[in-house]
């Protein structure tokens, strides 16, 4: 334990409200949060092209979806139904795809 004589005296004399600490912590967390990449126009156009080709030809694609903790990669055959994008996976399951989270589309 530090004493007044030897320690960081300003640490002992500091006046910080608990709410200040909480605010600083929240700010740090917000800064550290992963943000989705900002895609250029031509990147978006290319994604759209690859996806629409795959839908047309019923060919499988590999989709990368942004997630705050870790990106999610899913594979399957894309399909547009009821105004939504779906992916038929190899195991026969159909999953909905949130296209707003799409950051990469590749032919698999």
């Amino acid at each position: 334990m530090t004493t007044i004589r030897d320690g960081n005296i300003f640490e002992a004399m500091r006046i910080l409200l608990p709410e200040h600490r909480t605010t600083a912590e929240r700010y740090r967390r917000q800064r550290a949060r992963r943000r989705p990449p900002e895609l250029f126009e031509d990147e978006l156009a290319e994604m759209q092209y690859v996806l629409s080709e795959a839908i047309e030809q019923r060919r499988p694609v590999r989709l990368t979806l942004f997630h705050p903790s870790e990106d999610v990669v899913i594979e399957g055959v894309p399909e547009l139904r009821g105004g939504r994008l779906w992916l038929w996976q190899a195991d026969g399951n159909r999953v909905p795809v949130d296209y707003r989270r799409l950051i990469r589309v590749e032919v698999s």
């Binding site: 605010t23 600083a24 700010y27």
Partner: peptide
Amino acid sequence: RMQLYLDVSVRIHE
């Protein structure tokens, strides 16, 4: 408006 002051403070400190 204490929360406002804390928010500004944290950003200046940053």
